[in-house]
Simulated assay, not measured.
Amino acid sequence: MSHSDSLQEAGGYSPPANVKVWDPFIRVFHWSLVLLFAVAFLTGDEIEWMHLWAGYAIAALVALRILWGFIGSRHARFSDFVKGPSTVFQYLKQSTRLEAPRYVGHNPAGGAMIVLLIVMLVGLSITGYLMTTDAFWGSKPMEEVHEALANVTLGLVVLHVLGVVISSLEHGENLVKAMITGRKRLP
């Protein structure tokens, strides 16, 4: 008889099958960012006003996410998921052998991806804003940097989705559903 079985028999207590991991801010931030990045990327030069407003909304969301990374719930804090390069590479190596440990919050590779995406989105926001100023209005070099950052960010998004699929399969859990419900099963 396991410890949880004896607890259940002794007092009727049943441990939770899953726990709240992602708070409402993180979930709304994530899915809003997905939508806004798609809008910004797809409108580009075609619908400039929509591209600009999506960019401003992304900048505001990222600023709030950075703040939330210091004051938010446990698994939203950078201190919970930002790891050093050796830990990230060790995790990736384990994952290629399908031996990576499961994390309730972000795994080290996911944490690194969050940091990379935030850095890229900050760069996109800054270069996008600069192109609206007198100093950089119509600047081809600034436009090229902005477009390069957008393309690299899109590549990171593809890697992020691939990582979510691989981790979901490796650990037998639906990480997309977890980002909708905010809940994950206990290890």
Score class of each variant (00 low, 15 high):
84 G>C: 07
139 S>W: 06
103 Y>R: 08
82 V>Q: 02
4 S>L: 07
56 Y>K: 12
51 H>C: 02
106 H>V: 04
33 L>P: 01
144 E>S: 09
43 T>E: 01
94 Q>F: 11
122 V>G: 02
21 V>C: 10
59 A>G: 10
7 L>V: 06
162 L>M: 13
153 T>G: 10
104 V>Y: 04
86 S>K: 08
32 S>W: 00
48 E>V: 06
151 N>P: 00
69 G>C: 07
123 G>T: 08
175 L>H: 06
84 G>E: 04
179 M>G: 09
163 G>F: 10
6 S>R: 15
95 S>K: 13
11 G>C: 12
73 S>L: 10
70 F>W: 14
17 A>S: 11
60 A>L: 15
159 L>P: 05
183 R>Y: 14
89 F>R: 02
59 A>W: 10
178 A>Y: 09
181 T>H: 13
165 V>R: 04
112 A>T: 08
87 T>V: 12
7 L>F: 05
12 G>I: 12
146 H>N: 02
134 D>F: 10
119 V>G: 15
88 V>A: 05
106 H>C: 04
177 K>W: 13
88 V>F: 11
106 H>A: 02
7 L>D: 04
151 N>Y: 13
52 L>D: 07
88 V>G: 06
51 H>V: 06
56 Y>G: 01
98 L>W: 14
93 K>I: 00
155 G>M: 05
128 G>I: 03
51 H>E: 03
172 G>L: 00
136 F>S: 02
141 P>Y: 11
75 H>M: 04
134 D>Q: 14
45 D>G: 12
